[in-house]
């Protein structure tokens, strides 16, 4: 199991996560408390949703650089429309539709005009950031009662543990993604595309539809992540979530999804997000370590997993 490109990296990630927890538990008092673990989900709910969307895209062998900018755009749309007095019942669906349409455009650009995913999503990234500035240059705070209620609600889990509604949303997204990828025809086609687009086409799979659909899913997830992020920060800011696309890609890679596509699991990506989160938690607990160590650790982890994947797939050949 360890040497297969399918399961190997995920198992390594799980072992790594447990090891980091063990190290943290030995070094710091209170690190192994349940709330510390739950806070990983509370603080990273939006990143989990982003990583789920990104997993779909990367499984087909693509990449989506626009997610961070789309998150920012969603926070801006939410903040400005709520400020203008629209009801959350209108705003939230509108954001999800808008970001899905953006995903659709990106998907069409990639499939119909044969633009490389890297370039197409880069263009979408610039577009989304640009739109943010058109809406406003400044931070807009949100005072809408629904949003503030959503932000401050804690769901008690017994004892003194609690989570936020955002976590519930993220978990639902993960469950839906697992079901879609493992048990539907669309899910199988996603894996098939990553394994070999040409072969998929020759097998008569719906290549075009699937390829466009993964970018719609990624767009939808970015919109949803943006809304969760808005609950988290209660404001819209055009410069928010810069570099988040890198975190999402890193989480997916650390979670064992092959960047060339074809291998990987949504649950692996969730583990990847948790690894990023726990590194951040350790740095907070340590106190003296500066936050920029996070980036160096993430870079080093990326390297380890990339080389690991290389070794595993090389042996297979």
């Amino acid at each position: 199991m360890l040497t297969s490109p399918k399961h190997g990296p995920v198992v390594v990630t799980l072992v790594l996560l447990l090891a980091i927890f063990a190290i943290g538990g030995l070094r710091y008092r209170g690190f192994l408390g349940g709330q510390v673990f739950l806070n990983l989900f509370v603080d990273n709910a939006y990143l989990i949703v982003l990583a789920v969307g990104m997993t779909f895209v990367i499984l087909t062998g693509g990449i989506d650089l626009s997610v961070g900018a789309v998150v920012a755009l969603s926070t801006m749309i939410a903040a400005s429309m709520l400020q203008a007095g629209w009801s959350p019942g209108v705003v939230i669906p509108l954001i999800l539709i808008a970001t899905s349409v953006l995903g659709l455009l990106v998907g069409l650009m990639i499939h119909v005009f044969k633009v490389q995913p890297f370039i197409a999503t880069l263009a979408a990234m610039f577009l989304a950031r640009g739109l943010c500035y058109i809406i406003s240059n400044n931070s807009i705070s949100i005072t809408d009662p629904f949003f503030t209620a959503f932000a401050y609600t804690r769901i008690p889990l017994g004892g003194r543990l609690s989570i936020t509604p955002s976590v519930v949303v993220a978990v639902l997204v993960v469950i839906a993604a697992v079901v879609v990828l493992q048990y539907t025809r669309f899910g199988r086609t996603v894996y098939a595309l990553g394994g070999g687009e040409q072969s998929g086409m020759l097998m008569g799979l719906a290549v075009a539809r699937t390829k466009v659909l993964v970018y719609i899913i990624s767009g939808f997830c970015s919109g949803l992540a943006g809304i969760l992020f808005t609950f988290y920060t209660l404001s819209g800011y055009p410069l928010t979530a810069i570099g988040t696309e890198l975190d999402a890609i890193a989480a997916v890679v650390i979670g064992g999804t092959l960047l060339t596509g074809g291998y990987g699991f949504v649950l692996g990506s969730v583990l990847g997000v948790l690894v990023l989160g726990v590194i951040q938690t350790i740095i907070t607990f340590e106190g003296t370590l500066s936050s920029w160590w996070t980036r160096i650790f993430i870079g080093a982890l990326l390297l380890v997993f990339i080389v690991l994947q290389k070794l595993l797939t090389a042996r297979r050949r």
């Binding site: 890198l246 920029w292 996070t294 980036r295 993430i298 870079g299």
Partner: peptide, 11 residues
């Protein structure tokens, strides 16, 4: 390969 340095480099 270059993503590694892009992520770690600013750190």
């Amino acid at each position: 390969a270059t993503l590694v340095l892009m992520t770690a480099g600013r750190g």
